[in-house]
Design a protein around this nucleic acid. Sequence first.
DNA 1: TCTATCATGTAACCAGTTACATGATTTT
DNA 2: AAAATCATGTAACTGGTTACATGATAGA
Lengths: 195, 195
Amino acid sequence: MTKRKVANLLGLAVLAYLSRAPMHPYEVSKTLRAHGDDRSIKFTHGSVYMVIEQLEKAGLIAAQETTRNGQRPERTVYGITPDGRAELEDWLRDLVGVPRHEFPAFGSALSLIGALHPDVVVDLLRQRLVLLEEQRSAAAALADGAAPHPLFLVEEAYRQGLLEAEIAFVHRFIEQITDPVSGWGPMWAAYHQTQ
Amino acid sequence: MTKRKVANLLGLAVLAYLSRAPMHPYEVSKTLRAHGDDRSIKFTHGSVYMVIEQLEKAGLIAAQETTRNGQRPERTVYGITPDGRAELEDWLRDLVGVPRHEFPAFGSALSLIGALHPDVVVDLLRQRLVLLEEQRSAAAALADGAAPHPLFLVEEAYRQGLLEAEIAFVHRFIEQITDPVSGWGPMWAAYHQTQ
DNA sequence: TCTATCATGTAACCAGTTACATGATTTT
DNA sequence: AAAATCATGTAACTGGTTACATGATAGA
C-alpha cells in the first residue's frame, strides 16, 4: 500500500461525513462529537482544522463557498471531491480487510513489568480489574439504551469483546503470579532484589 | 495524574533499561531491538535519540561521560537519576493499575463502516479472518519457542487474548450481516443506496 | 447587565518521522 | 579493492496539541 497523503484516521471520518453533505470545519467538529465518534477516533477541535487543511491540500476535499454570519469569523464550507470518495472507499476497505499491528499501552507496560515488585503488581492488577469491570457495566448500559440500529453499536460490541478478553487475561495473570505451588511470585521477587 | 514531562512510552522503556546499566543512545536502540521490544513499543532509530534528549531535559537521566572510539562520532553515556527511578516506578504503576481509553484502528473503521456496501464488508471481514488466523499461528509458534521464563512472554499472552477476541467478534459480525432470516444485509444495502 | 458559554478560527509550540551524513567493518 | 552493511549521530520537515483570540448568544 502506497503511503496515504493524509494518515490521520480523523481524516477518514471527515471524508465519511463530507461524503453525505458539505460542511464547514466547526460543523464537522460538532457533528463528530454529537455522533459520539470521539469514542472511536481521537481528535480535538484544533486537529479537525488541521486535518481539513491537509485533506484540501491533497485534493480530497475542496472549498465550496465562503459565508459570513454577522461579525462571526468567515466559514468555509468544504465538499468531498471524486478523489476523496475514492480514497474514502479504499482506505476503509484497507482498514477492515487487513489487520495492522497496534501498540496498546497495557501491552507496553507488560513488556517492562519486571521492573516492579510482584507484590505491587498483584495489587495493581486487582485495582485494574475493578476499573475494567466498571467499564463493562457502563458498556452494558450503553448497549441497552436503544440505538436506531445495532449496526451503530458495532464498534461498542468490538470494544466489549476486547474488554472481556483483557479481564480474562488479568485474572489468569494474577493467578500465575500468586499460585501457591507454582506461582512466579518468589522467583520474580528474588530476581527483583538483584537490582 | 499531573501530565508527565515525557509522554512517549518509548521514554518508559529507556528508563527501564537505563535503570539496569548506563548506556549510550545507539546501544539503547540496539538493546531494545534485540529484546524484541519493538513488538510492544513503537520506535525508530531517530525517536530514541529524541526521547533521550527529552528525558535529559526533564532531569530523569543524565549524561555520565563522553567517550570516543577512533574516528567514530562521540558517544555520550546516560544514566538514570533518582528522579528517573521514581518516574519509572510511578509511570509503570499507573499504566498497570488504571486502564486508559485507546483507539484501535479497526474500531475506528467499524464506526464508519456504514459507508461501505455490506457485500464488500463481508468479503473484507472474511479476508481479515484469514490474516488474523495466520497471526494466531505465528503467535502459537512464538509461545512454543523456549523463553527463559514465561514472564517474558506475558505481553504475548495478552496479545493472543486480544487476537482471539477479535476473531470471535469478526465471526459474529459476519453472521449478523449474512443471517438469512434476520441479517442486516438487506436493510444496510438499501440504506447504502440512498447516498 | 454581567457572566458564562458557544461559535469560529489562528498561531505557536512541541513531538515524531524521514532523510541524510560519514567513518568503520565486513563480505565478495 | 569495491560494495555493502554497521555504528553513530544530526537536521529538516511535518504533523498534532495547546493556548489564545474574539464576537454572539443565553442565563442569572
